[in-house]
């Protein structure tokens, strides 16, 4: 298979649930990802952004519409073992929940080495060296990889989950809420690293998160999702500075930086309904 050249989503939809209570999680999304593009997808819970990301890497099949990789449909690539491995070599996925994404009975190194051997075709020694190098790049001491997933902190586990994706040196990396659960002191270095990896290798990134600032930092294009649909799509700075959709403006309003005034936040009147009846004795 050729190197990653294009991932195209054409009117992709996904619905869940029984027929009489069908819930449309993703509703007709069309999108193209090309090498070097860093696409941020933001939205609140239930906007369909995670489902979209999972479909991009073939973890979920679309109910309607098609996804193609270099012009070949993703479904046919996933059918055959050889092309499936090739696809995994080019496209990697990092999920939010790192506790369940590592085998609890194996050491982290064993888990990370598997893709290096099977997908990147390295022998065991070379794979171990790659694991060490990737861990160091992500700011984790290589010795930590000899532990089990339960024996490292959440931040370290998240870095190693990214390491497992990066050992195969993918050309498209799809990240689903990878920093949301982490402390801000840890977030910065992981975001820096993701951005640097993509810039250095001209790799593409799809970064899904409900955290607008982090997403805006890593991406050069932003998609705003709501109720399964893309309500705004454009270069990051355009979306941030001149949003067209009212929902985007609401979203931006919720992410304003440190207050600079003194004490206004406390006493400012807020839009809270006053009791209809007379207050009962508290």
């Amino acid at each position: 298979m050729d190197r990653f050249g294009q991932l195209a989503l054409d009117a992709v939809s996904k619905s869940f649930g029984p027929t009489h209570r069908r819930h449309l999680a993703v509703d007709g999304v069309t999108l193209e990802v090309t090498p070097g593009a860093r696409i941020g997808i933001v939205g609140e819970s239930g906007s369909g952004k995670s489902t979209l990301a999972r479909m991009m890497v073939g973890l979920d099949a679309p109910s309607a519409g098609s996804i193609s990789f270099n012009g070949v449909s993703l479904r046919s690539l996933l059918r055959l073992r050889a092309s499936r491995l090739e696809l995994r070599r080019e496209v990697q996925f990092v999920a939010q929940d790192t506790t369940s994404s590592f085998d609890p009975l194996r050491t982290l190194r064993d888990s990370i080495r598997v893709p290096a051997q099977r997908l990147a075709g390295l022998d065991r020694r070379a794979a171990d060296e790659r694991v060490d190098a990737t861990a160091v790049m992500l700011g984790v001491s290589p010795e930590l990889t000899d532990r089990h997933p339960g024996e490292v902190s959440g931040g370290q586990r998240q870095r190693l989950a990214i390491a497992r994706a990066l050992v195969v040196e993918p050309n498209l990396l799809v990240c689903d809420e990878v920093v949301s659960a982490l402390d801000v002191s840890v977030q910065g270095s992981i975001l820096n690293l993701l951005k640097r990896y993509c810039v250095d290798r001209d790799a593409a990134l799809v970064f899904v998160s409900h955290g607008l600032p982090a997403t805006a930092f890593v991406s050069d294009r932003l998609l705003v999702m709501r109720g399964g649909q893309v309500v705004e799509h454009g270069p990051t700075s355009t979306v941030l500075h001149s949003p067209t959709h009212p929902y985007t403006r609401d979203l931006l309003a919720a992410f304003h930086g440190p207050r600079s005034d003194t004490g206004a936040g406390v006493d400012a009147p807020v839009a809270l309904p006053l009791p209809r009846s007379q207050p009962a004795p508290a």
């Binding site: 002191s185 820096n192 600032p213 982090a214 805006a216 304003h256 930086g257 440190p258």
Partner: peptide, 22 residues
């Protein structure tokens, strides 16, 4: 001080590199 500086804000989009504790 470091914590306050590390919080990503919308202005972070303009940065090449986010500040970290280090």
């Amino acid at each position: 001080v470091a914590l306050l500086r590390c919080v990503p804000t919308l202005a972070s989009a303009e940065l090449d590199e986010l500040p970290t504790l280090a």
